[in-house]
Design a protein around this nucleic acid. Sequence first.
DNA 1: ACATCATATTCCCATATGGGAATGTGTCAA
DNA 2: TTGACACATTCCCATATGGGAATATGATGT
Lengths: 114, 114
Amino acid sequence: MARTPTTTDVFNAVAEASRRDLLDALGSGEATVGELAERLGLSQPTVSKHLGVLRAVGVVHVRVDGKHRWYRLNGPALKPIHDWVRTFERTWNTRLDRLDDLLAELHSQEKKQS
Amino acid sequence: MARTPTTTDVFNAVAEASRRDLLDALGSGEATVGELAERLGLSQPTVSKHLGVLRAVGVVHVRVDGKHRWYRLNGPALKPIHDWVRTFERTWNTRLDRLDDLLAELHSQEKKQS
DNA sequence: ACATCATATTCCCATATGGGAATGTGTCAA
DNA sequence: TTGACACATTCCCATATGGGAATATGATGT
């Protein structure tokens, strides 16, 4: 087999740095292919192809307007990544460690009650 | 150019589902190549190679012990992913949604307890 | 020294990649 | 209709992939 296609899921789509840059750029609102190409210093076909990948996994949506195409971010499509990486957050985030402590405390209280 | 090598950064390393599975498996503690291979139903060379990629980007560490090799998770190496995806969190998580998530989590934890 | 166990490494191949260049498609204005 | 514009698509190629099979490495026990 070969490497997992970029359009398989959000993880693969977002692995490419240029595509993360595109999403970052779209964070401030809708944008046109040309605008994005100029902002990121990429060629138009390159941007179009990257946006195609991002659209395939649902992380961007398009709005057609005459000869323009307005791309916009669809944040919730990134949630799987957030949810996955969040399960490891306790290994570096002390604030969440405290949340764990709180949960543990709640659980011990539950045990006492039941 | 070709696709960005898997050992370029954590984003690329973690794009492959099998490697995420490996990290999930290591979440419960150290493990041996053989153990991981059996748990995930992968061949030994496949696991070794995946672990090599994960080690290259620093998301796992190894401890040599005789003819065994104990791999362990190095969570903080995942922080760049967390930091990046977190900038989009507002697009799906309002403050109230977060409270819902917390409550849901508490409930699922309760179920696990009882 | 030897056999065995646990891993790592190499060789193989079908497959997909990202980027450049060129071309296709659809829209608008005159 | 014709041209200009904004994008999408196609064709090209060097490059890396993941997995299977085979082999190498290295430590342990006898």
